[in-house]
Design a protein around this nucleic acid. Structure first.
Length: 321
RNA sequence: GCUAAAUUAAGGAUGA
């Protein structure tokens, strides 16, 4: 059976889930007795085929055969529930796993956070996180969120405008010995910008540099985006200069953001100047660069320029989207 | 001891 499991897992890993099921059926036909591992592979295939219902059937079979579902079983089923949009059931399974004494690992937790954040249930994720922390203080249930898990929740909270909660979670993370990285800092900066706390955002930016965390192109783009949306495009331009001095090269997203800023301020000439300078500086352009500038021209009724720009875009083999 | 939850995994930015 080990050999068969190895075969099935290999086929499963290359995503040929249906073939796994066919092979499994042949095994049954040949009276080969499967074990828990085989059933886990099978169950996972059902879940990945968006058939959690069949996944649960596999679970039933497992129980009927006297096997005790393990971490792998639960993790697969949780993922399957999310794939099928059955969020409440995913949470229910997670709790059931803990209550039945099944020791969950970092991966199970990551799967749950991934599913919750992926469906926008950030507050649910936070509540579960808190609950798990409490539980783990009483009895070790294997709850050890890594920086990715923290980061997803922190970012989600920031996007909901709940920076205070995000900051608190970040402090908790630190107290657990995990230092915030560039992604976490960037999320917090974006969250602060989102609620209009620019000074505090700038403070975090300076703070991260003090901590030796180098802001990257995304960090700068977040700052630039905020300044642009607040009508402070010159200040935004200043950040482009700063990032270059700090060794970060603006990418197309960074440039598009500033381009949009100029357009929003009605400074179409400056937008064009910057657009041209992008080429000179070797900064990347993409379809969005053209779209943004064309939108600017449209708003000013400069239709000839729009057409000219569009033709230039097509001639440079940028595909209109 | 070998096989299972894609650990070559999973988190942050721009226009429409």
């Amino acid at each position: 059976i080990f050999s068969f499991n190895l075969l099935l897992s290999t086929v499963s890993r290359i995503k040929r889930y249906k073939d796994v099921i066919l092979m499994y059926n042949k095994m049954v036909y040949c009276n080969l007795l499967s074990d828990l591992c085989t059933l886990n592979i099978l169950l996972n295939c059902f879940c990945n085929l968006k058939r959690v219902d069949l996944g649960f059937s596999a679970l039933t079979l497992m129980l009927k055969r006297g096997y005790v579902p393990d971490v792998v079983t639960f993790t697969s089923l949780i993922k399957g529930c999310f794939v099928a949009g059955r969020i409440d059931e995913a949470i229910g399974l997670f709790k059931k796993a803990i209550n039945t004494g099944c020791k969950l690992n970092a991966r199970t937790w990551a799967t749950l956070i991934d599913g919750l954040c992926g469906s926008g249930s950030y507050l649910v994720a936070l509540a579960l996180h808190k609950e798990m922390r409490k539980r783990n203080d009483v009895f070790d249930v294997g709850f050890k969120p890594n920086i990715i898990c923290y980061s997803r929740i922190i970012d989600g909270l920031c996007k909901e405008g709940l920076v205070q909660k995000a900051k608190k979670l970040c402090l908790e993370m630190k107290s657990n010995g995990i230092s915030p990285d560039v992604v976490v800092y960037t999320s917090l900066i974006e969250g602060l910008c989102y609620v209009g706390k620019w000074d505090e955002a700038k403070g975090v930016f300076i703070g991260m540099i003090d901590q030796g965390i180098h802001p990257d192109v995304i960090t700068f783009t977040v700052l630039i985006n905020d300044r642009c949306k607040k009508g402070k495009t010159d200040e935004a331009k200043g950040f482009i200069d700063l990032m270059v001095r700090m060794g970060e090269i603006p990418n197309s997203v960074t440039c598009n953001t500033l381009l949009e800023g100029f357009c929003l301020e009605g400074r179409i000439e400056d937008a064009r100047k910057f657009f041209d300078s992008m080429e000179d500086n070797g900064y990347d352009r993409d379809v969005i660069s053209y779209s943004v500038l064309m939108k600017g021209y449209c708003k000013h009724g400069m239709m000839d320029d729009v057409i000219e720009l569009f033709e230039e875009m097509v001639s440079k083999e940028y595909k209109p989207d």
